[in-house]
């Protein structure tokens, strides 16, 4: 077979496999790709992951097709004498084209990711921990409900500065409201992962890490520690709830009165806390 027909056959097979993969993975399975659609952040993440998958599949198909095509068509005869392949050492035009195409893909991906992070569908940092001075925030960030997430080995507690600085082991947030998580730690590095909310932010002692989310519907979500924090890291989880606004008001009021005695004993609300470290002697 000539070089040209090899090339044509390969390209057709690649195209065919790409179409099949795109249809199966993106069109049929695409809707079920995590992390679901509970919040603005998860919707943004879902869209990005589906887009990246759609871009990755042709690359995957290319290498698969190529390996299979080479294995079938370019194999030496089993018991014949030693034969040599075509002795070409490179093709400048193809190499330049390859660099150009991959460079365009990379630039496109980086631009897409940056735009999505800073001003995309989520428009609030897509739920990632953005440090103390977040660049991307919701339009009415000033009115967001502040919830402080305090990590310590191996429990989560949550503090609501707008409600008397009450600290509770339960996490509830109202639906349809911008929520501003302030994540910090009292001992080692943890990471706050509210899976169905699409929020992930490391909890670093002495640091304030802000992440935003707006939930679209009510329901419950898992919270897991996502950074190895010692013995019971795997068990450092809890369940949070997204509830209606009135339910939330009622719940937080109940927490305020329930923990009123504790709140008095707590240090005043602050973005970071410095408990005395345990020292050797």
């Amino acid at each position: 077979m000539s070089e040209r027909s090899h090339l044509r056959n390969f390209l057709l097979l690649w195209l065919g496999l790409t179409v099949v993969l795109e249809v199966v993975v993106v069109v049929i399975l695409g809707h079920d790709i995590p992390p679901g659609s509970m919040t603005n952040d998860t919707r943004a993440q879902h869209d990005v992951i589906v887009t990246l998958t759609a871009i990755a599949l042709p690359v995957l198909a290319m290498v698969w097709t190529y390996l299979a095509y080479a294995a079938v068509n370019f194999r030496a005869s089993a018991d014949g004498p030693l034969e040599d392949g075509a002795p070409d050492r490179g093709n400048a035009r193809l190499q330049i084209a390859w660099v150009a195409v991959t460079a365009c893909m990379v630039l496109g991906l980086a631009a897409y990711g940056s735009i999505d992070l800073l001003s995309g569908a989520g428009s609030s940092g897509v739920g990632s921990g953005e440090g103390p001075n977040p660049l991307a925030k919701p339009a009415n960030a000033g009115k967001a409900l502040q919830v402080q997430v305090i990590a310590q080995q191996w429990v989560w507690t949550f503090r609501y500065p707008a409600y008397g600085g009450v600290e509770t082991p339960m996490l509830e947030i109202p639906v349809g409201t911008d929520v501003e998580f302030h994540v910090t730690s009292l001992d080692v590095v943890h990471s706050f992962w509210a899976i169905e909310l699409g929020v992930k932010a490391d909890a670093v002692p002495g640091a304030d890490n802000v992440a935003f989310v707006t939930a679209d519907r009510t329901g419950s979500f898992q919270v897991r520690c996502n950074e190895l924090c010692g013995l019971w890291h795997g068990h450092m989880n809890t369940t949070g709830h997204v509830v209606g606004a009135s339910v939330f008001k009622q719940w937080i009021g109940g927490q305020e009165s329930k923990y009123a005695g504790v709140t008095k004993q707590l240090p005043p609300y602050s973005t970071t806390y410095y408990p005395q470290p345990i020292r050797n002697g």
Partner: peptide, 22 residues
């Protein structure tokens, strides 16, 4: 190839927010 392509997902902050540390 799988390693490289999954790395592209991890390099993208919005996708990484789901995938980081998992």
């Amino acid at each position: 190839l799988f390693g490289g392509l999954s790395g592209v997902f991890l390099s993208d902050v919005p996708a990484d927010t789901l995938l980081h540390g998992s």
